[in-house]
Design a protein around this nucleic acid. Sequence first.
DNA 1: GCCATCATCTTGACAGCGTCAAGATTTGCG
DNA 2: CGCAAATCTTGACGCTGTCAAGATGATGGC
Lengths: 202, 202
Amino acid sequence: MPRKTYHHGDLKNALIQAGIHILAKDGVAGLSLRRVAGKAGVSHAAPYAHFTDKQALIAAISTEGYRRIHERIEAAVAEFEGDPSRQLLEAAWAYVDFALTDPAHFKITFSGVIEKEKEHPAFVEMSQKSFGAVIRIVEACQAQGVLAAGPSDLAAVSVWSLVHGLASLVLEGQVSHSLLDRMSVREMLVFSLNQMTKVPIP
Amino acid sequence: MPRKTYHHGDLKNALIQAGIHILAKDGVAGLSLRRVAGKAGVSHAAPYAHFTDKQALIAAISTEGYRRIHERIEAAVAEFEGDPSRQLLEAAWAYVDFALTDPAHFKITFSGVIEKEKEHPAFVEMSQKSFGAVIRIVEACQAQGVLAAGPSDLAAVSVWSLVHGLASLVLEGQVSHSLLDRMSVREMLVFSLNQMTKVPIP
DNA sequence: GCCATCATCTTGACAGCGTCAAGATTTGCG
DNA sequence: CGCAAATCTTGACGCTGTCAAGATGATGGC
């Protein structure tokens, strides 16, 4: 479908959305600048008016992925105000659920496709924002004795390693079929988190 | 340097080794079939006599990566026979250390670049072998009360998620600089594992 | 010892890719 | 109104993965 105007109007966002759709349909391997441009209805070199190179587009797509996760984490925090262990579980589940729902988007966001993140400050900012939210949850858990005391940023890394690792292993098919038959990924998450917490969580 | 003989002799392994070297020098993005072929001293289409496509070569490189990790895990198990918590720590460290030493090799092995692993049985076999070793370590830990009782394959997934997640987050630069300044990755690993164990490990 | 067969490797081609340069078109500011 | 800047198109370049056709050499049967 050709556009009416020569200028697109909101090409930058259109490219990001087109990229996310292509990721969902054809995976990381299917994501090319030319296909993204085509899907947005512009010529193959048009993206260069908005992104310096393919890495920059990937960084923008990744940032959007991170933004969605952060959004859900904050929603979980708000919904279970005053219940840190539930906040921990639901924030972790938000992360894992995003990975399961949109695997390619998760992969491109967290699989180190971005080589030099320093050059993508928006991505770094989103990353730090999310990690800050996790630290606050962990601190609340520590205050209630749900998690062991200790440096909260360190404990947050431990918890987030667990959650990120579970999501990654499931996505990469490294979790045995016999285990996936016995229980859901959410149940695995609950079990895993309970290995760390001093008090059982639901 | 041109070869003496028309036939290479051991091209298949040479291609795998060349690929590993290129990964170490130029990262995942630098790995192309043609460069691998060039480094092995053969023409650009020669690899197709040994690998059906690029994915197959990547699978072979990944399998070799997995093999090295498995080797080190078994070495750790042998070295600390009768000391399950130490076995757990050193096996985990073998994993993380491999990731830190050869980041691109680790990434390509575990970052889901292989789309259909079902078609690469050697990779699946190596994966199951390694996971079996982890299960045995976890069972030994459970028997000594180092880890909580429960289904050992599930507990192994929890432990391995933690380890895999830590390696991944560090590699992707998602661990804050302020934390990396305060302590080594090995210390983070020890701390994280101690969050899960009932008995402190060194 | 010779020859046929087969695996191995080379050469050449193709479409798709990321990227850049030059030019066309439109917008918005002075 | 006019001109500079932003946006988009067109065309080109080298590199990529892959395939087809042919060259080369090793191997096993006679």
